[in-house]
Simulated scan of single mutants.
Amino acid sequence: MPDALLHDYFRSSASYRVRIALNLKGISYRQHAVDLRHDEQKTAEYRALNPQALVPMLEMNGERLTQSLAIFDYLDAQVKEPPFVPSEPRPRAHVLALALTVACDIHPLNNLRVLRYLKTELGQSQEAVDSWYRHWCAEGLAALEALAAPTAGEFLYGDQLSMADICLVPQLYNARRLDTPLDDLPTLTRIDAMLTQLPAFAAAHPDKQESAS
Rank of each mutant, 00 (worst) to 15 (best):
F84M: 14
F72K: 05
S13Q: 11
V55Y: 07
R190P: 04
S28F: 02
Q124L: 15
P83T: 13
N110V: 13
F155T: 11
D130W: 00
D130E: 12
P150E: 11
A14N: 14
Y117A: 13
Y9W: 12
L112I: 02
A99S: 14
L195I: 08
T151E: 13
L144F: 13
R116Y: 06
L36W: 05
L195E: 12
M60Y: 14
T187P: 02
P2Q: 15
Y117Q: 08
E139G: 09
R47C: 08
L195S: 08
Q209N: 03
Q41W: 15
R90G: 09
R176P: 01
Q126W: 02
P86S: 08
D192M: 02
R177N: 00
L198H: 15
G140A: 10
S68K: 03
N174D: 07
P170C: 09
G62M: 11
A138M: 12
P181F: 05
V114Q: 14
L109Q: 09
L168K: 00
D35T: 07
A44Q: 05
A203E: 15
P186R: 04
D3Q: 13
L109Y: 06
T189D: 08
A200W: 06
F201K: 06
R176Q: 14
L100H: 12
P56T: 00
S211K: 00
H135P: 01
Y74T: 05
Q126M: 04
D192G: 02
R64M: 04
D3M: 11
P2C: 05
V85L: 15
D192S: 05
A152S: 15
A138N: 12
P82Q: 14
A21G: 13
T101M: 10
L54S: 09
E63Y: 13
S13F: 00
I27C: 03
L36Y: 09
C167P: 05
D183W: 02
L5M: 11
F155A: 08
D165K: 04
D3K: 06
M1R: 10
R177C: 00
V34E: 06
P56Y: 04
Q52H: 11
N50T: 08
A77R: 10
S87I: 07
G123A: 08
S28D: 13
P51H: 05
Y16T: 12
V129S: 02
P82K: 02
D207H: 10
G140L: 14
A175F: 00
L188H: 05
Q31Y: 07
H107L: 10
L185K: 04
A204I: 07
L22Q: 04
L161K: 08
A33V: 02
